[in-house]
Write a protein that binds this DNA or RNA. Sequence first.
DNA 1: TTTTATGCAAATTGTTTGCAGATAA
DNA 2: TTATCTGCAAACAATTTGCATAAAA
Lengths: 141, 141
Amino acid sequence: MQKLAELLKAKKLKVTPQRLAIFNMLYNTTSHPSAETIYKSLQETHPTMSLATVYKTLDALQKAGLIQQLNVGEDSFRYDANVSSHPHVICLECNRVFDLESDILNDLRSKVASNTDFDLISEKVYLYGTCPECKESMKEE
Amino acid sequence: MQKLAELLKAKKLKVTPQRLAIFNMLYNTTSHPSAETIYKSLQETHPTMSLATVYKTLDALQKAGLIQQLNVGEDSFRYDANVSSHPHVICLECNRVFDLESDILNDLRSKVASNTDFDLISEKVYLYGTCPECKESMKEE
DNA sequence: TTTTATGCAAATTGTTTGCAGATAA
DNA sequence: TTATCTGCAAACAATTTGCATAAAA
């Protein structure tokens, strides 16, 4: 928590209980929650925090480069405290989102760079399918 | 146009002037327009067509597998009559969206399949950067 | 004639904004 | 103290929906 407070201060963001709670939650999960999910799961510990504060905090953290926004094709955004440009795999059965290693994009990056003459800055890569667990439970039926 | 009418009929969709106009426009562009852009550019030839009809038509075409929806990270969707699962490069200066060949994803697909045990179904791949033309005009300044 | 599509206006939903009071520095 | 944040309610924008009329099959 101390570490997160330092990260906020380094970006000249005031350290508030709300910000710490949101940042901390994102920092300790790989579930890529949405604003709504974050809001609901912090209801118990921060019952007075509003959804608008969640949105404003996520916006501030994102602008500071401390988190990133994902758009996996749902109707709302998800957030990730892993700010490296890494690909994600999404299970179409359970809707969970998993991280992949960034370096599996190296081949793609170099191919695109040589095919297009673009100066590439970033990328968003989402793969869709069925996760091992859901494959199992589908077999059983 | 005859060809497009056949494609609609094959999907049991009624062939209306609005649907033909929208489908035809998408079929003859690589600009990946949004619903709003399609609506505006068809105003001249189809002044009575409503935006709701554009949305309903895009939805029908998409469900029939005749077009696909893109989410390049803007506040609205774009549409593509190329329904193959191909990557896109987006220029952050001029906001144009370009198609890439599907097969440059082969390496990524096989890497992800072997790393995750997912059964992969599809993918959305967007790369961001500066296109050759915008690189030129930035040099001049 | 039957079925499906269109066009209008109203509804929906995730997200943003304005602002007064509260809190961090 | 003063600069910034919070929380509420209202605003927003892209998209969807209900329904009466119109057009396709």
